[in-house]
Computed example of a mutant assay.
Amino acid sequence: MKRLFLVIFSISIISACSQSEKKLPILGEREAVEKIVDGKTVVDTVYKTIPDFSFLNQDSIVINSDSLTNSIYIADFFFTSCPSICPIMSKNMLSIYNKYKGNNEVRFLSYSIDPKHDTIPVLKKYATKLGVEGSQWSFLLGDRDTVYNLARNGYMSYTKENADAPGGVEHSGYFILVDKEKRIRGAYDGTDKTQVETLTNDIDILLAEYKTNK
Results as ranks from 00 to 15, higher is better:
K101C: 00
G154I: 06
T194Q: 15
S18E: 07
G134I: 10
D114N: 12
P51N: 10
L56R: 13
C17W: 08
K182S: 06
K124L: 10
L150T: 01
D204M: 05
T119S: 15
L150D: 02
G167K: 07
D76W: 02
F53I: 04
R3H: 12
A16H: 03
K40Y: 11
K116V: 12
S138A: 14
S112W: 09
D52Y: 08
S172V: 03
E34Y: 12
I88T: 15
F175A: 07
A163M: 03
I184Q: 04
V7H: 08
E105C: 11
L177F: 12
E181Y: 15
K124T: 03
C86M: 07
N201M: 08
I113E: 00
T191P: 02
F175N: 05
C17D: 01
P51S: 10
E170R: 05
V42K: 11
T80Q: 04
D52W: 03
T80C: 08
H171R: 09
P25F: 12
V169P: 00
T200E: 07
D179S: 06
A187T: 09
K99G: 00
A208C: 01
E105Y: 10
D38S: 15
N149A: 14
K40M: 08
I72A: 08
I63R: 05
K2V: 07
L109N: 13
D66H: 08
D59R: 14
P83M: 14
E170G: 00
I205F: 01
C17V: 15
K23G: 00
E170S: 11
G28Y: 12
S10K: 10
C82V: 03
V46Q: 10
I205S: 01
E161A: 02
S138R: 11
R152G: 00
Q136K: 10
Y47M: 04
I74R: 04
N162M: 05
I203Q: 03
L27S: 01
D179E: 10
L199T: 03
K180A: 08
S12I: 09
I205T: 11
